[in-house]
């Protein structure tokens, strides 16, 4: 899973996709995940980090994480080349 190049998210949770011209708002936990994705962390590492910081369980987070990745994909924010390789 890799973010598209140039996709940046601000501290306040603003995300701009220069390829499509769309802007998005992201909640704080979403910002954390996007920044971890930017660092090319694995889903396992991301899960570990979030579970360490937020009060939730593994099953809940993994379900929500996949949902979130699905939406990033839906909005064309993931690097599709990377995905086909993986």
């Amino acid at each position: 899973m890799k973010l598209r190049k140039n996709v940046a998210v601000s501290e306040a949770g603003l995300l701009f996709n220069p390829v499509t011209g769309e802007s998005y708002s992201v909640n704080p936990i979403g910002v954390e995940i996007i920044n971890l994705l930017r660092e090319e962390k694995s889903p396992e590492d991301i899960s570990k980090f979030i579970l360490g910081k937020f009060a939730t369980d593994k099953a809940t987070f993994e379900k929500d994480y996949h949902d979130f990745i699905g939406i990033l994909e839906h909005h064309n924010l993931l690097d599709s080349h990377e995905e086909t390789k993986a």
Partner: peptide, 10 residues
Amino acid sequence: DREEFEQISI
């Protein structure tokens, strides 16, 4: 500027 649009939107 996009920042202005984002400012009013958010």
